[in-house]
Each structure stands twice: as C-alpha cells, then as structure tokens.
Amino acid sequence: MDALKSAGRALIRSPSLAKQSWGGGGRHRKLPENWTDTRETLLEGMLFSLKYLGMTLVEQPKGEELSAAAIKRIVATAKASGKKLQKVTLKVSPRGIILTDNLTNQLIENVSIYRISYCTADKMHDKVFAYIAQSQHNQSLECHAFLCTKRKMAQAVTLTVAQAFKVAFEFWQVSKEEKEKRDKASQEGGDVLGARQDCTPPLKSLVATGNLLDLEETAKAPLSTVSANTTNMDEVPRPQALSGSSVVWELDDGLDEAFSRLAQSRTNPQVLDTGLTAQDMHYAQCLSPVDWDKPDSSGTEQDDLFSF
C-alpha cells in the first residue's frame, strides 16, 4: 500500500511530472533526481522514447528462454528487412502500455495491464526491452520488442512496467475491499429498513384510530445511509488515497477476473515476472533518469539497429 499512497501523494503535489519523457535525446524537461521519484509518476504514465523492432507469436506467457528466442527472431526479421526502425513513445501506467508513433502521434497499440504476463531486458541484446501480452483480438500470446538507447534504459522500462503492474494490483485490492464494505453496509441498511417496515402498523389501523404518522421519526431512520450505499452501487469504487486528485481509476471486468485468478494461483500475485536478476534490479533502481541518457562506457552510441 505504500507504493499506492506515495504515488497518489506525488501526483497530487505535481501532476505535471508524469508528462516528462525519457530517452528522447535531450528533449525532456528537468528530471527527478532518483528512481523513487520517477516511480511516483506512474499514475498518469511515464513516457519512454524507443524504437519498435516488431512482434512475434509465442506459445507460453512467460520465460527467459522463451523471450530470448522470440527477441532473436524479431531482431533477425528487422535486420533482414533493412528498413529504419519506427520511433515510438511507450506510455507506461497502472492501466497498461500505450504505444504511439512519434511522427504521426497515431495510436499503435493499447495493452491493458492485466494482459501483460512478462517483461524483460534481454541478456543477449542488452539494449532490447520486450514484453509478452495476450492479444486483445484473440487468445494468442505476442512478444513485442523495442530497441532502447542503452542497457540502462531497457532495464528502466522493464522495472517501470513491473512497478505499474504492482500498483494496478494494489488498486484492485483496495477497490475489492471498498466494494465488500459497501455491499455489507448496503445489506445491513436493508435489514434495518426491513425491520422498521415489519414493526410499522398498517396504514388502515392508523387511520381508524385517528393517529398521525410521525414524519420526524421517519426522517431519523437510516434511510439516507441505505440510499447512499445503493444509489451508486454500479459505480466502481476508487482508492481513497486518490481522493481529490485528477486521476480516475476504473476497474473493468477483465482486470477484476484476471487479478482474482492471480490472487488464487500465485504466492506473490502482485509481482510481474521479469528477466532481471536481483543485481540488475538493484543497479537500475539506483540510477537517476539522467543516467539513462548518458552514453555507455563501451563506446559511442549508434542510432541504428545494427549497432548491437
């Protein structure tokens, strides 16, 4: 819950932080000083300027060897085509990944977070970031790969997607708890209302004896509580940590079903599988986004697919 609360507080303090972009060759504004600060901008989305290598189908939802083989196929196909790589912007948030063309600003792909089953910074092609997700059109699994400016960037994108998945799962947990509370309150309110109706004398007997209905007592009954809980029953509950912020979080049926399955089948359902080692994760978390744009010590960066 700490990640969720800190993310909400950060967004309320400075929503404009989320509009910064990394990996864009110096076009961005001043960047936060450390990885923790940038992680807090996830709610509205972190932007990464990358190059799209392509996509291939895979048979399993996750796995280092599986993704490595898929990336190898994608890279080989991209090299064989001889075409310049498409420059894209990857927007990562707890909602998922939005992929747009840098030149036309046209939407290429919009992947809900619950469809993503794996992401990684490839070991062999260490400047490549990739994720595996279920197609929104059918049940097939797709591996999408992107060329980053350097290994640090690939690791940073991988960690960002993993963190977005974690925050999304926490949102789901909060929403589920809130819905259970509202359902319980609604049920209790309905029981109270039913009890009051059972003990209320029939209207005919009131008229016969000349008694008047006590409207004041009726007004004191917990009807307002019942209506408050039943009027918006169809509205999706939102985490309290975000009250007053500009973010509107809505959970669709697909996300609810997917996270429910994860909660039942996995020990740590909030953790998205990645190909990063503990050492890689520690190294990337210690980086400032400013470091992502620094040239690798191995030599001059080449803006070309064939540089790796």
Rank of each mutant, 00 (worst) to 15 (best):
L103R: 09
L251C: 10
A278T: 06
F48T: 02
A284N: 14
Q106I: 06
F48E: 00
V247S: 09
W22D: 03
S117Y: 11
I97A: 02
D304S: 12
R261E: 06
T158A: 13
S14D: 13
L305Y: 05
A221Y: 04
V111K: 09
K127P: 00
L203E: 06
M46R: 10
G244A: 08
I116P: 00
L31I: 15
R261F: 05
N211L: 04
L4E: 04
K5V: 11
E217M: 10
K30Q: 12
A185L: 12
R266I: 03
H125E: 00
T300F: 02
Q197T: 13
A68M: 03
A284R: 09
D122R: 00
K5H: 02
L47H: 01
K87R: 09
L85F: 01
L85M: 12
V88C: 05
P239N: 10
K127S: 00
C143W: 02
R182Y: 10
A195Q: 14
S224F: 08
S265C: 05
E109N: 08
P289K: 09
F165Q: 02
V207S: 09
N232I: 05
K123T: 11
D198C: 02
L287W: 10
P295G: 14
V207W: 01
Q136V: 13
L242W: 14
S117Q: 06
P222G: 09
S16M: 14
Y283M: 05
W35F: 02
A228S: 14
S21M: 06
P295W: 08
Y52C: 12
G194Y: 06
A263C: 05
D191A: 10
D2W: 02
S307I: 06
K87S: 15
I116G: 01
R27F: 12
Q20D: 10
T230W: 07
E109Y: 10
E177C: 14
R115D: 04
K220H: 09
I97C: 12
K87G: 13
I108S: 02
Q139T: 12
W292N: 06
D303Q: 08
G24Y: 08
S243K: 04
L212H: 14
P239Y: 04
K79V: 05
L147I: 02
Q163R: 14
I12H: 10
F306L: 04
K19W: 13
E40Y: 02
D122W: 00
Q264V: 01
L287Y: 03
G96M: 01
L242E: 15
L212A: 12
T300W: 05
R29D: 05
N138P: 09
L99V: 12
D303Y: 05
L203D: 11
D2G: 04
G254R: 13
S49G: 15
F259V: 02
T104W: 07
S288C: 12
E178A: 12
D183K: 13
Q134Y: 05
L4A: 06
G25F: 09
Q134K: 13
D280G: 07
S140P: 14
W22L: 07
V248F: 15
Y131K: 01
A221T: 10
D280Q: 07
Q60M: 14
E142K: 03
D252F: 03
E235W: 03
F259I: 04
K19P: 11
S175T: 10
P201E: 04
F129P: 00
E217V: 04
K176V: 08
N110S: 07
P32E: 12
V111E: 01
V247R: 01
S260C: 12
T218W: 02
L262R: 08
Q240D: 05
V161E: 00
Q60H: 15
L255Q: 07
Q187C: 01
M153D: 10
I74Y: 01
Q173V: 14
K184R: 14
G23Y: 10
V161R: 00
L141S: 10
S112A: 08
F165C: 02
F259L: 04
S112Y: 11
A185V: 08
Q106N: 05
M281S: 13
H144K: 15
A168T: 05
L43V: 14
N211Q: 13
A162N: 02
K127T: 00
G23S: 14
V290R: 07
D256F: 02
Q197A: 06
C143R: 00
D293Q: 10
R95C: 03
A284W: 01
G82W: 04
Q60D: 01
R29S: 15
Q20V: 11
L276F: 11
R115T: 05
I74D: 01
T277H: 10
D291C: 11
Q60S: 04
S205W: 03
T120R: 13
Q106H: 14
N34P: 05
A258N: 07
P94Y: 02
D214L: 14
A228W: 02
R115K: 06
L31Q: 09
G23I: 02
P222Q: 12
K83E: 12
R27T: 15
D2L: 01
T231M: 04
D37H: 05
K62N: 10
W35T: 08
L4T: 11
